[in-house]
Simulated assay, not measured.
Amino acid sequence: MIRLEDLTKKFGSVIAADRINMEVATGEICILLGPSGCGKTTTLKMVNRLIEKTSGKIIVGGRDTDTMDPVEVRRGMGYVIQQIGLFPNMTVEENICVIPRLLKWDDAKAKRRAAELLDLVALDPATFLHRFPRELSGGQQQRVGVARALAADPPIMIMDEPFGAIDPINREIIQDEFLRMQKTLRKTILFVSHDIDEAVKMGDKIAIFRAGKLEQFDTPNNILAHPANSFIADFVGQDRTLKRLRLVRVEQASDRDAPSVRETDELGRAHALMREHRSDSIVVLSAAGTPSGWLHEEDSSGRMGLVSSKARPLPAVIPADADLRTAVSLMFTHGMAWLACVDRDGRFIGQVTQASIMRRLGETYHELDGASAVPIQHGAVA
């Protein structure tokens, strides 16, 4: 969808972007990262021609943007910035309808689109359509900014630190909402960020810049597992293995054969299962198959009666589609070496342990070693 070929920008004697080569496929989110002045924002703005390039090519949807009117290029791209840029004298509805009206949409269609988009960004249209920006929180304003960028249903979105000015709690919420929308919308997105954690969470690809050069362009997993050089390793941080926990789902590290017993089973059966699986604990399930507690080996050894009489409460369970970072956090919070995994209906499907997490991370390193990486722009170690 977007291909950059030797893209270069000079401001006098200063080279702000130096022969950038990268390609972002349809439906991908590409995060542009790097220190201040590295060329990421300049590259972003050349794509929608807010800044004109010095040389090279920008191919969008198979068309060289040099053959297109700059206004046509921009109207095919939604644009979201950190400062949001809502018109203060316009209602939320009027702000969202700006581009549709420039495109000569009829009034009823534009208003329907505004209501649909507010619902999409989790703002109630009946409550927010006729409010002014000053009546919204920062997070709500940012959601309206995203809705406005989506108003004309552009295939591409250009986002310049869109969530950078929002407090951490609301930023996480908006990131999650945006990823939820992206599963349905499948826009092609270039997204400037300064936050490696945001990049790992949101990006299908990450492009890391330094002094105008593209140092590494790859998947988040490859960048964290195999930084191209010492600059990349320092930039992503010494905790890059911990960052990779966000990229692996709990179901990928869970033991589907972990033993369990019903509340109505005998304690002797629970003890036998623990001995069979060489485990000192076992999950207790309700009649519906949901985890309701657990037993330690000492709770069942030599004892009579039903499992329910000795079951201990479970402090936490973990959804199978959660990431391993969430799982590790829960383990540390509750002082547990394992967690019961549940499906979307809350039914027990296995167990994830500290050991299984370590094993799965090791396996993913080997898998990456065997996979072909996205080519990087200039020489670096894999």
Rank of each mutant, 00 (worst) to 15 (best):
D6A: 14
L7V: 03
T8Y: 11
G12N: 11
I15Y: 12
A17G: 08
D18F: 05
A25D: 13
E28W: 08
C30Q: 04
C30V: 09
L33V: 03
P35W: 04
P35S: 10
G37P: 13
G37T: 06
T43Q: 08
T43H: 00
K45V: 05
N48E: 11
R49M: 13
I51V: 15
E52V: 09
T54G: 09
S55M: 09
S55T: 12
K57D: 07
D64C: 07
T67R: 15
P70F: 07
V73K: 00
R75S: 11
G78C: 10
Y79V: 13
I81H: 06
I81P: 01
P88S: 02
N89Q: 15
M90G: 03
E93Q: 15
E94Q: 15
P100G: 06
R101Q: 15
R101W: 10
D106K: 14
D106A: 05
K109H: 14
A110E: 02
K111A: 12
L120I: 05
V121L: 02
P125W: 02
A126H: 11
F128Y: 15
F128L: 04
R131A: 04
P133D: 07
R134V: 11
G139D: 06
Q140F: 04
V144R: 03
R148G: 05
A151Q: 01
A152E: 06
P154H: 09
I156L: 15
I156D: 05
I158E: 04
E161I: 05
A165S: 14
I166K: 02
I169Q: 14
N170I: 13
R171K: 14
Q175R: 11
R180E: 14
R180T: 11
L185M: 13
I189S: 01
L190S: 00
S193K: 03
D197E: 15
G203C: 10
A207V: 03
A207E: 07
F209H: 00
G212P: 02
Q216I: 02
D218A: 11
N221D: 14
N222K: 10
N222P: 07
I223Y: 04
L224C: 08
A225R: 06
S230I: 11
F235D: 00
Q238F: 10
R240S: 13
K243F: 08
L247N: 08
R249M: 11
E251C: 08
A258D: 03
P259L: 03
P259F: 00
S260V: 01
V261E: 01
D265I: 06
L267I: 09
A270F: 01
A272E: 03
L273W: 00
D280A: 13
I282E: 00
V284E: 05
A287T: 13
P291C: 09
S292P: 00
S292R: 12
G293L: 10
L295E: 03
H296S: 12
S301P: 04
G302T: 08
L306W: 04
K310W: 10
R312W: 10
P313H: 10
P313I: 07
V317C: 14
A320E: 14
A322L: 08
D323M: 07
L330Q: 12
L330S: 07
T333G: 05
L339I: 04
L339H: 04
C341H: 01
D343P: 11
R344L: 09
D345Q: 14
G346F: 06
I349S: 00
V352Q: 01
T353A: 08
I357P: 02
L361F: 06
G362H: 12
T364M: 14
E367T: 11
V374F: 10
I376T: 10
G379A: 12
V381D: 12
